[in-house]
Amino acid sequence: MQHIQTVLAKSGAYSRRETGRMIEQKRVTVNGVTCTHSTEVLPEDEILIDGKPLPEPAERIYLAFHKPAGITCTAQQKVEGNLVDYLNFNTRIFAVGRLDKASTGLLLLTNDGSIVNPLMKEAADKEKEYLVETKRPVSDEMIAKMRAGGLLIKGKAASPAFAEKTGEYTFRIILKQGLNRQIRRMCSAFGNHVTSLKRVRISHIHLGSLPAGEWRHLNLEEIHLLKVGVNDQN
């Protein structure tokens, strides 16, 4: 048996976040019974959303996108500057993780909802590398604390990270965590302010020379390495 959210996400039509909302709204039934977040299903069970069968699985798409500043990582088209309207892609895709509106750099996009949550868990052990520029000089104390971990980000302790100064006002940092506005909040804790934040790598996938606003398909090796361990988590 599989959890209902896993089955819906594997259909490729919905992200896990969306499936959670649909379950809360009582739009999903299994064999005629409204399901809950704890519902498990068998392959032969009839799953309906709004009384309709699941759509046929779409061809899997995996993209690397160079997000420019000013774009919001959301599929909600009521939000000005949303990702969907900007990309105007020919099929429905969503982001694996996020970059805040002011940040730039590598963003992974897919229509494979089954990989999104597992990849964003710290246990997935996926490194994310950033280049950061600050308003004030980067202090040795701030770098040391980022390396040691323990800074509180909205009540949760930041894990130890690789960090190094690359200039008077710049540093490089590699995270495995994904706390909300983590780098900006860590800098703020030392009275500094991020003026530029760019993600240049997620695990083995590099931004490289991809121009801002452009995307490319991941190659087969990149896709395979991205999914290593995901099936075990599902």
Rank of each mutant, 00 (worst) to 15 (best):
I4K: 00
I4Y: 01
T6E: 14
L8T: 11
A9V: 03
S11E: 02
Y14H: 11
R16Q: 12
E18Y: 08
G20Q: 09
G20I: 00
E24C: 13
Q25M: 05
Q25H: 11
K26S: 13
V28P: 03
V30Y: 04
V33Y: 01
D45M: 06
E46G: 01
E46Y: 05
L48C: 07
D50G: 13
K52M: 11
P53A: 04
R60L: 01
I61R: 03
Y62Q: 00
L63S: 00
F65Y: 12
H66A: 02
P68K: 10
T74I: 07
T74Y: 06
E80F: 03
N82P: 02
N82E: 02
L83H: 01
D85G: 05
D85T: 14
N90V: 02
G97A: 07
G97Q: 03
G97F: 05
K101F: 05
L106S: 06
L109A: 01
V116H: 09
V116G: 09
M120G: 06
M120I: 14
E122N: 14
A123C: 08
V132M: 07
K135V: 12
P137E: 02
V138L: 09
E141I: 08
G149P: 12
L151F: 10
L152S: 15
K154L: 14
A157H: 12
A158T: 13
E164D: 10
G167K: 09
E168P: 01
Y169W: 13
T170P: 10
I173S: 08
Q177P: 04
G178F: 05
N180W: 10
I183M: 00
R185A: 08
F190G: 06
N192Y: 07
S196F: 15
L210Y: 04
E221W: 08
E221C: 04
H224R: 15
L225I: 11
L225P: 10
V228E: 15
V228C: 10
D232T: 07
N234S: 02
